[in-house]
């Protein structure tokens, strides 16, 4: 009786999960399959779930049309540099704010937190002028420096600080006994223990950089320097008419690799995220 009820409950639960999963899976499915359809089938109504006449034609045209390979490389290397840079800057700052009682550390931390509250749209004009003064417009510097040192890295610092605050004091005591200085404590004791938090910061910063849209649109004007989100909106003919199939193929190529990497490594990602100080 009881097992029968729990079996039903289980089935109901699975059913609910499956229904809920549809809007999460369908867009990606549709994007991938539509990118294989010829342009006129994309708008077939009702839509076909699988292309009647699959073709990779549009994928080739992506590369004809834009320096897509270079743009892919740009996005990739910028995201990687931003990730590594953010890990360094935010773990050090997070460590300092959590474990070193230097004068004004609480006040300074509050000041840093202001960055969390500023939409990038607010500061884009002055930033543009500042970078222009240094001749850095239409270079990748703004897309590297601002995420690593500016407002976007504040969330990372917050995550790291919350994590380091929770580290038991005894661990550092032991390190001190071994004669470690501040840097030693940070590098040898704190960092190795903070892998989950570092993992979360890495995902956040990678995705943030990878998704950046307004900044590249404002800062970059040479197609060879474009990043992917910016490139994605440019698949139009010379008069602004959209080229749907090519655009979808490009979108698939930007989304799928990251998605696959994520699915393969998702356990570390999600668990890293789950074990951060963000849980309070």
């Amino acid at each position: 009786m009881r097992t029968e009820r729990s079996r039903r409950a289980k089935l109901a639960l699975y059913g609910l999960l499956c229904v809920l999963a549809v809007p999460f899976v369908f867009p990606t499915w549709w994007m991938v399959t539509s990118s294989l359809k010829p342009a006129n089938e994309i708008f077939a109504f009702p839509p076909t779930l699988w292309p009647a006449d699959a073709t990779l034609h549009a994928y080739g045209r992506v590369f004809d049309f834009a320096p897509f390979g270079v743009q892919y490389f740009n996005s990739m290397y910028i995201a990687l540099v931003v990730t590594v840079g953010t890990l360094a800057v935010s773990s050090m700052a997070g460590y300092a704010f959590a474990r070193i009682k230097f004068p004004g550390h609480n006040l300074l931390f509050l000041v840093v937190l202001v960055g969390l509250l500023i939409p990038s749209e607010v500061t884009i004009v002055p930033l543009f002028q500042m970078f222009n003064r240094f001749g850095m417009v239409d270079t990748h510097w703004p897309l590297l420096l601002v995420p690593i040192f500016g407002a976007p890295s504040v969330l990372a610092t917050l995550i790291m600080r919350q994590f380091f605050i929770a580290l038991p004091a005894e661990i550092e005591e032991a390190g001190r006994m071994d004669g470690l200085g501040r840097f030693g404590l940070y590098w040898r004791m704190a960092l190795p223990l903070s892998r989950p938090a570092l993992g979360a910061v890495a995902i956040f910063s990678f995705l943030h950089s990878w998704n950046l849209y307004l900044e590249p649109v404002v800062f970059l004007s040479t197609p060879e320097k474009f990043t992917l989100p910016q490139a994605l909106t440019q698949f139009t003919d010379a008069y602004g008419g959209p080229m749907w199939d090519v655009q979808l193929s490009a979108a698939t190529m930007t989304a799928l690799p990251v998605l696959i990497v994520f699915i393969v490594a998702q356990r570390q990602f999600v668990e890293g995220l789950a074990h951060t100080g963000l849980k309070g």
Binding site: A96, I100, V146, I148, G150
Partner: peptide, 26 residues
């Protein structure tokens, strides 16, 4: 230790000054 604190937080503080507070002021 204070110096270490400033040095550790330095890059972030500098970044906040240049890329957050300065543009906000502007």
């Amino acid at each position: 230790d204070n110096l270490a604190g400033f040095l550790f937080a330095g890059p972030q503080l500098a970044g906040t000054l240049v890329f957050v507070l300065l543009p906000l002021g502007l």
